[in-house]
Design a protein around this nucleic acid. Structure first.
Lengths: 209, 209
DNA sequence: ATTATCTATAGATCTATAGATAATGC
DNA sequence: ATTATCTATAGATCTATAGATAATGC
């Protein structure tokens, strides 16, 4: 079979019109979110893209680095939008609502359910510390806003209640896991629910929309 | 080394005072919830119990059957309690609150965060269909109760809102994943939040406690 | 010379089976 | 005879590296 060696154009991409590295990321996103990280072999990813297993390593040094790239890409956008969202005028409730809305829209926007990557047990290992800390920053931003809301509204919140808005937004991940075909209004409803979890009435945020 | 073969009592259990099968389940529960299913080898489970890798197969035919056993054990209790919870008198809101409280208490009670097993991508495979359908039964019970509440309170709920109480209870899983040392009152607060997500005031359920 | 691909493979797993050994209980 | 354990191993992976080949761009 000496006539099938080495030509770049053998590939016959399954996911055309993308750079190879992006095709690999896209295939890995699908497989990692639906089958898991350890259960997905580099061979399976390559096959999905139309490459040989070893060719993956031209673009990524390790399998881990593929997952790391995907993880960081998901927090990037929201973390970049954060200063703007925190700076806005008016009620803290309106800012919290805006953050929850932006964040849940983000979780809904990706082709694959990338939020599900956060739930992969492998991600809790120290190899992904940079992602874990970026995500903790986001969680802290929620907590800070929640405290502002509590002060403004005169609420006494428990440790658990302080966590709830962030967790309610995360709910989008499991909702996506269990159903296909999502209502497009979801991010607004989730943001409402995130505030309702604190017992804050809607007239505190509707003005800001 | 012919003097170290075959004696039952070589084992030197790391988890004494349990039947071997239970020790295996306990070790697997810890490893599956913290490292994942595919990432956990039968060798690692055996080591954790103080057995040789192959000895696991005296108790479980396959690695999958270990996970299946764990999964079914988690829905069992709540599903058994369901008829009783649904039958009680009074407001539907009180029944929904009671279910949410029972369910979240269940998720909090286990030594290991067994709810995290639901989130393992491997569980979505058809090998675990019996578990998946048992869990859908639970989800349906929530949906039915939510509809009763909506009727009683005259609420018009969207598809997403109908899901929220169930999802808010699931929130316990990710809260447990991120923190050690949980407040014991959590299940009550979660149940409150599950109803608040629907916008139902507390005087609809406090009587039932 | 660099880039994108390929084939081949080393070395390290991993699951499950086969078959031996010893203790226990009839 | 049954139960609980062990050792050894088959066969199937899986990740990553080495080194070849061809196209592209200087």
């Amino acid at each position: 079979m000496s006539n099938t060696v080495g030509r770049p154009r053998l590939k016959q991409s399954q996911r055309p019109s993308m750079e190879a590295a992006d095709e690999i990321l896209d295939a890995a996103a699908e497989l990692f979110t639906t089958r898991g990280y350890s259960a997905t072999s580099t061979r399976r990813i390559a096959e999905s893209v139309g490459l040989q297993q070893a060719s993956i390593y031209h673009y990524f040094a390790t399998k881990q680095s593929i997952l790391r790239t995907l993880l960081l890409s998901t927090v990037e956008t929201t973390l970049a939008a954060l200063p703007g969202l925190l700076a806005s005028e008016g009620h803290a409730a309106a800012r919290l609502h805006a953050l929850a809305r932006f964040d849940s829209a983000q979780l809904l926007a990706s082709t694959w359910n990338l939020g599900a990557l956060y739930l992969l047990p492998e991600v809790r290992g120290s190899e992904f510390d940079d992602f874990t800390s970026a995500r903790r920053d986001l969680r802290d931003a929620y907590a800070t806003l929640v405290d502002e809301v509590a002060t403004e509204e005169g609420l006494a919140l428990s440790t658990v209640q302080r966590e709830l808005p962030f967790r309610v937004v995360e709910t989008v991940i499991s909702i996506r896991m269990d159903s296909d075909g999502l209502p497009p209004t979801l991010s607004g409803e989730i943001a409402d629910a995130a505030l309702r979890a604190l017992g804050v009435a809607s007239d505190r945020w509707v003005a800001a929309l």
